[in-house]
């Protein structure tokens, strides 16, 4: 039996097909201004790359912010359930899943089956999401990729007073004017956002093992700050950006068995 998971993220749409518990193929498209077209395209690509037809796919489950808008999906599951399921597929020892995307941060406590027991969310405010780091790297005029790396070279701890991304941008500009090294500013930014994520995680409890997924998981500066804040080394699954789609495909597979 083949099932599909579609993760309708705010920025990138991901599609993943599984056959009897094995991942067949993964594709992604930039959501842009026509997310449904992008979803259609990613799905068609996945189907053709897997060498199957649309009719071969028994169930299609959608997740992510725009999940309810996918016309060809059979059902939807929340991002929280999808991430927990997806992470535990490759890392069964995980009990806490942290997800930090462009517009949201989430912490999920789950059992050994990937069933959600508790969760906390920060949404609708850039201070607790990946957009914060993006805005700061722009203010510092350092590409996002480099921004994460240079942060690791700093040994200083500069506090950031502003919580709001708009005010923090002005603070970063003042630090630049005060000739503060860019690496130290980058670390201050990552420490600031990590501390907000840590207190969100505390609300569900820091139960080992802890996994980090979402776009920000690819930022080594953030991961380092988070590890220090949690006092735990987080696991970053390979293909972390696909865990939502994987979770959705797995839940679709469970539905197929019933």
């Amino acid at each position: 039996m083949i099932t599909a998971g579609i993760d309708m993220g705010a920025k990138i749409i991901k599609v993943l097909l599984i056959k009897d518990g094995e991942v067949l193929v993964k594709t992604q498209e930039v959501a842009g201004f026509e997310p449904l077209e992008a979803a259609e395209k990613a799905f068609d690509n996945a189907v053709s790359q897997a060498g199957v037809t649309r009719e071969d796919i028994k169930y299609i489950f959608a997740t992510g912010a725009g999940r309810s808008a996918v016309p060809f999906a059979n059902d939807t599951i929340t991002e929280v359930s999808a991430s927990a399921k997806g992470v535990l597929f490759s890392h069964p020892s995980v009990r806490t899943v942290i997800e930090v995307g462009a517009e949201e941060g989430r912490a999920v406590k789950c059992d050994e089956n990937g069933k959600v027991q508790d969760f906390a969310i920060n949404e609708k405010c850039a201070a607790g999401a990946g957009s914060f780091t993006e805005a700061m790297s722009r203010a510092l005029e350092v590409p996002l990729e480099e921004f994460g790396k240079i942060s690791l070279t700093s040994e200083k701890s500069i506090p950031m007073n502003a919580q709001c991304a708009v005010f923090a941008e002005s603070e970063v500009v003042s630090l630049v004017h005060a000739k503060t090294p860019k690496a130290d500013i980058a670390k201050a930014v990552h420490d600031a956002i990590a501390s907000r994520i840590v207190s969100m995680v505390r609300r569900v409890g820091i139960n080992k093992d802890v996994a980090l997924v979402g776009g920000v998981s690819r930022n080594p500066g953030f991961v380092d700050s988070l590890n220090r804040g949690l006092e735990v080394e987080v696991i970053v699954p390979k293909d972390a950006e696909y865990v939502g789609a994987l979770g959705a495909a797995l839940v679709a597979g469970e539905r197929g068995k019933k």
């Binding site: 201004f33 517009e103 609708k124 405010c125 850039a126 957009s131 914060f132 805005a135 709001c164 991304a165 708009v166």
Partner: peptide
Amino acid sequence: SSTCVVFAKSEATSLLR
């Protein structure tokens, strides 16, 4: 619809587009 200025800015950009 977004309260957050950062998100409202992206929303405005899409509206202009």
